[in-house]
Nucleic acid binder design. Sequence first.
DNA 1: CGCGACTCCTGCCGGC
DNA 2: TGCCGGCAGGAGTCGC
Length: 270
Amino acid sequence: MPELPEVETSRRGIEPFLVRKTVTKVVVRERQLRWPVPRALDRELPGQCINAVSRRAKYILIDTDTATAILHLGMSGHVSIVDTGTPAGVHDHVDIELDSGVALRLRDPRRFGSLHWSRRPMQHKLIKHLGPEPLGPDFSGDYLYERSRGRKLAVKQFIMDAAVVVGVGNIYASESLFLAGIHPTRPAGRISRERYLLLARAIVNVLDRAIDAGGTTLRDFYGGDGQSGYFQQQLDVYGRADEDCNRCGDTIRSKVIGQRNTFYCVNCQR
DNA sequence: CGCGACTCCTGCCGGC
DNA sequence: TGCCGGCAGGAGTCGC
């Protein structure tokens, strides 16, 4: 489910329940997620006080004095805050119980998510190779332009490559290319600096707006199931094949690029 | 090294 | 109503 805005919204939702709380118990009901949940996590996390809940790309980092839990929600993961002792559903794989009487509960039906435990999270193999944060200071149109020289793959795949820039998932790739007026199949290396400036601005704009929308629609972290309203933001093209373009009225097309469905307007995007 | 294909898993939706 | 195929918002890995 989650793209970067959903992960950031989840992080903000759980943060106040975790920071300065001490972990009393870790319950792992299903260890086999995308990778096995390391036993060191349930062995070493209890007794630790949580210092911070941060985010790198689509990873949520739960920081303690000894190590950091690295949580990825995959395509179907959710986090929620429940009262300790709340019965778990079939896909509630992990609970992290706190001394405040609540627990952070991870649910992930498809089990594409993961949970790691690392003493140097920024050096972890899943984190180390990642490109800049799109909402951080190292991301710009100039950066995209330089990185794309000589690349032949479709620009949509280029901006979805986490080594180039993190956090641009399938929905927001289509949306930002629409905003920038760039056709998704255009080879990344054959797009001008000026157009990359537009694209970088579009990516930031789309993600900012989605985080704002998430903040208003995704608030049910305590007691709820951690989902609701992910899609209530306005999408211009994603999921709108055969509907009319909001800008020109032409018909929105869809096409599979790199095994992922892609939506665009042939009239507005070249 | 760059790129495309494949893979993990369950839920849900549309069509028959 | 029930069954079945196809598809889903991620991303590491493998082979060419």
